[in-house]
């Protein structure tokens, strides 16, 4: 037996103040979640679809050598072919290129809406819950009142009054969208803030921001993620709805919503002009929904037998 020599060991570099640091990554929980998520076939289909869509949104517009806005009147309304994979529209523009250009805008709208909701929601809900008492009461009452405002009607008013731009559209979508997020964050934080480990951290002298960052936010990630995943399809849906009402983005910008509503009258004559944007709206909403569901199921194992 070899003797255990001291010089075979090295000090791993523990510092004294760190010894009290009570933090641990939630790896095993998330690993559990991911395992359950990966087992969900529908969610995996959704994930694959989403990855494909994002890939095409990045590279699709450059794959054909056509430009999304240049007209070519002699090439109008051509059926899908080797030349134009998805056909051309009524101004002779390549539908394939426009579809992926549209994907960028639709995804941009969806993701920005989700991120802005997240930002405001986390700050509002987090502060309300953490401060509690009067602050909480006031902040949540304000949110309640705003929540009563019908979201789509407000979006319509915004587009009518402020003009039809990308910024207005995102603003219209987030003006009440964050409330849901704020409520979820608040609910989660409320139930977590009195847990033992938070108490322990507080006893050890951790400040509010540290507790929020290290303990509360990571543990509320699940529901937040689910809410965000479901915000994206709502935003894409709303964009297409507004486009149909004639309140969509200005040309020659292509979004799936404007393309689909432009294509509606052509359903009988040039169905590809409706089919492709419509199909990708549906696929994207489908993907985000099943991913969201999958995440929710994975986070809440009770539902899975």
């Amino acid at each position: 037996m070899e003797p255990v020599l001291r010089d075979k060991f090295k000090l791993a570099g523990i510092k004294h103040q760190d010894a009290d640091n009570v933090s641990r990554s939630g790896l095993s929980f998330w690993r559990d979640v991911m395992t359950r998520f990966y087992k969900n076939k529908l969610a995996m289909i959704g994930l694959a679809l989403l990855i494909g869509l994002v890939f095409m949104a990045v590279f699709g517009p450059h794959m054909t050598g056509y430009d999304y806005r240049t007209n070519n009147l002699s090439q109008k309304n051509l059926a899908p072919s080797a030349e134009h994979w998805f056909g051309t529209d009524d101004l002779g523009r390549d539908v394939f290129t426009r579809t992926w250009e549209g994907a960028r805008i639709s995804l941009l709208i969806g993701v920005s809406a989700a991120l802005i909701d997240l930002l405001i929601g986390v700050i509002w809900g987090g502060i309300a819950a953490y401060r509690g008492g009067r602050t909480d009461e006031a902040m949540m009452r304000a949110a309640d009142i705003l929540y009563g405002v019908p979201y789509l009607l407000l979006a319509i008013l915004f587009m009518v009054v402020l003009g039809q731009s990308l910024a207005t559209m995102i603003l219209a979508m987030t003006i009440t969208g964050w409330i849901n997020m704020a409520r979820i964050v608040r609910g989660e934080v409320l139930s977590l803030k009195n847990r033992e480990y938070v108490l322990a951290a507080r006893t050890l002298g951790a400040g509010m921001s540290r507790i929020m960052r290290k303990h509360l936010i990571p543990n509320t990630m699940g529901p937040i993620l689910v809410t965000m995943t479901l915000t994206v399809p709502t935003a894409i849906f709303t964009e297409s709805f507004l486009s149909y009402l004639g309140l969509g983005l200005s040309p020659p910008l292509a979004s799936w919503g404007t393309m689909a509503s432009d294509g509606l009258p052509a359903i009988k004559y040039y169905p590809w002009r409706l089919f492709f944007p419509a199909a990708f709206i549906c696929l994207t909403i489908f993907a985000f929904n099943v991913i969201g569901d999958g995440l929710r199921d994975a986070l809440d194992p009770k539902l899975r037998k």
Binding site: L42, P233, F237, S240, F241, Y244, G257, A260, S261, L264, I267, K268, L274, A278, I281, C282, L283, I285, F286, N289, V290
Partner: peptide, 21 residues
């Protein structure tokens, strides 16, 4: 559930146009 997700995924103006067509 596929039917349900499909119902959520199709915007109403597309659904209505297709049904009408």
């Amino acid at each position: 559930m596929i039917i349900a997700v499909a119902g959520i995924s199709v915007p109403s103006f597309i659904m209505a146009t297709v049904l009408q067509y």
